[in-house]
């Protein structure tokens, strides 16, 4: 069987997810043994016409992005969104909570016409996304699971329980009990509760579970003495697009 032909692409974001692929120092040579990476601007020269798997990082935020994601979708059999920007719009989507003209004017003043911009969108708003690797940056263990499944011709399984589940398994002290805001109760697990394990709160980077109890989450936060608007803001950090239209 021929090795799958893989391409890696980036849109509006920090390229930290791509960097995390170069950070598989212990597995990189094995990975390269199972696929042919044929297009990756950040690491190599050249472009191709046909791909088995496209890994795509970043959100869509300019007219040029929209054209390019259609081209990538057309030439790829499977498209995988990498990281919070590609999956949910990521931190870029925070700008969507304010009028776009106001935002442009603040940054470029009367020269704003030089640089066209759109609200930051997840890939799934424009093309069909087959699978997702979540997180900011993308969770490395999840990438390896998705990658292995695809190479073996199986569909990856996407987790849909809260980060709290993994946090309990790690026997961490509950972050909320420590008096900090934590978005673990409504955030999709798969990261091994990495931030709480290192003493930090969960900031929701992996996106919401499919049926998040946002109201209950807010109640917990307010109970711990955290102001309602602060709780809402922290939810927006990675989930501005998902919260649009949700009643506060």
């Amino acid at each position: 069987m021929a090795k799958p032909r893989v391409g890696i692409f980036d849109f509006t974001g920090c390229e930290g997810c791509e960097l995390n692929q170069l950070n598989f120092e212990d597995q990189l040579l094995d990975i390269l043994g199972h696929v042919d990476i044929v297009e990756w601007r950040e690491a190599m020269d050249g472009q191709v016409d046909e791909l088995d798997i496209a890994f795509v990082e970043g959100s869509l935020s300019t007219p040029e992005c929209i054209t390019r994601i259609h081209e990538i979708r057309r030439k790829s059999k499977v498209l995988v969104a990498l990281g919070a920007c590609a999956v949910q719009g990521g931190v870029n989507a925070m700008k969507n909570t304010r009028p776009i003209e106001e935002v442009r004017e603040e940054v470029y003043g009367d020269q704003k016409y030089l640089f066209p911009t759109l609200p930051a969108l997840p890939l799934s708003a424009v093309v069909k996304v087959d699978f997702a690797v979540r997180g900011c940056p993308m969770t490395q263990i999840e990438f390896l699971k998705v990658f292995t499944s695809l190479v073996m011709g199986k569909a990856p399984i996407e987790p849909d329980s809260a980060v709290c589940v993994e946090c309990k398994l790690k026997e961490n002290e509950c972050v909320v009990d420590k008096g900090m805001i934590c978005l673990g109760p409504i955030t999709r697990m798969g990261c091994g509760a990495r931030c709480p394990t290192f003493g930090q709160y969960c900031n929701g980077c992996r996106g919401l579970v499919s049926a998040p109890n946002i109201e209950g989450m807010q109640e917990i936060l307010v109970e711990k003495g955290l102001a309602m608007d602060e709780a809402w803001k922290r939810l927006q950090l990675y989930n501005a697009n998902q919260l649009e239209g949700v009643q506060r």
Binding site: F11, T12, S61, T62, E64, C65, V91, N92, M94, K95, T97, R98, V103, R104, E106, V107, F115, T117, E230, K233, L237
Partner: peptide
């Protein structure tokens, strides 16, 4: 590179 507009993200945040 597409502009990111970080100021829209930072304003008013803790």
């Amino acid at each position: 590179e597409a502009p990111r507009y970080f100021e829209a993200m930072l304003k008013g945040r803790s």
